[in-house]
């Protein structure tokens, strides 16, 4: 089953391996990222970074789609991990049976982005993707690790509009 759907542009990293994998008892990490999937060096870096208690697979968005149902239906705790909300939107569209919750973690600053939380920067395109995901009745929330504050998309979206 998919235990957590998370957007985090650092993919597998300290916060992830120290807290998220343990908190959600993750057994399999499914990384959905075209760039990482097409780059053998990056692929090796993230496969190497996977701690022994979990297994990672790395797919492009298109490779993910035919495999996603299997991850939804199996008995393992799966972390579905991607770098951008635009990818999440694509998967929510192709698989309506996905868990209706999206966790957004750290996304780094880029020149065209707006600061949404202290650790999340979103581009206009990404904000639109999040809006569209929320309109599909998916609960979107910002959270780094479960012991830290949760910020709901509903709390920040109006601030973005007025700002």
């Amino acid at each position: 089953m998919i235990t957590l759907i998370r957007v985090d542009d650092r993919l597998i990293h300290g916060q992830c391996i120290v807290r998220v994998l343990a908190d959600f008892k993750i057994e399999k990490i499914v990384i959905v990222d075209d760039f990482t999937a097409s780059n053998p060096v990056l692929k090796n870096v993230f496969l190497l970074a996977t701690p022994p208690q979990a297994k990672s697979v790395i797919f492009s968005v298109e490779e993910t789609k035919p495999n996603l149902l299997q991850f939804i239906e199996n008995n393992e705790n799966v972390l579905l991990l991607m770098r951008s909300p635009t990818v999440a939107l694509e998967l929510f569209k192709s698989h309506p049976q996905l868990k209706m919750e999206l966790n957004i973690g750290p996304i780094s600053y880029r020149p065209d982005t707006i600061k949404v939380t202290s650790y999340t920067y979103l581009s206009t395109e990404e904000i639109e993707a999040v809006n569209e995901i929320a309109e599909r009745r998916v609960r979107v929330y910002f959270n780094q690790t479960i012991d830290q504050k949760i910020i709901e998309w509903n709390e920040v979206k109006n601030l973005l509009r007025s700002g």
């Binding site: 300290g14 391996i17 120290v18 870096v45 970074a49």
Partner: peptide, 13 residues
């Protein structure tokens, strides 16, 4: 500092 974490991953790249 930490195996599997971003500073290590960035260095590995």
């Amino acid at each position: 500092d930490l195996f599997g974490a971003s500073p290590t991953n960035s260095a590995a790249m």
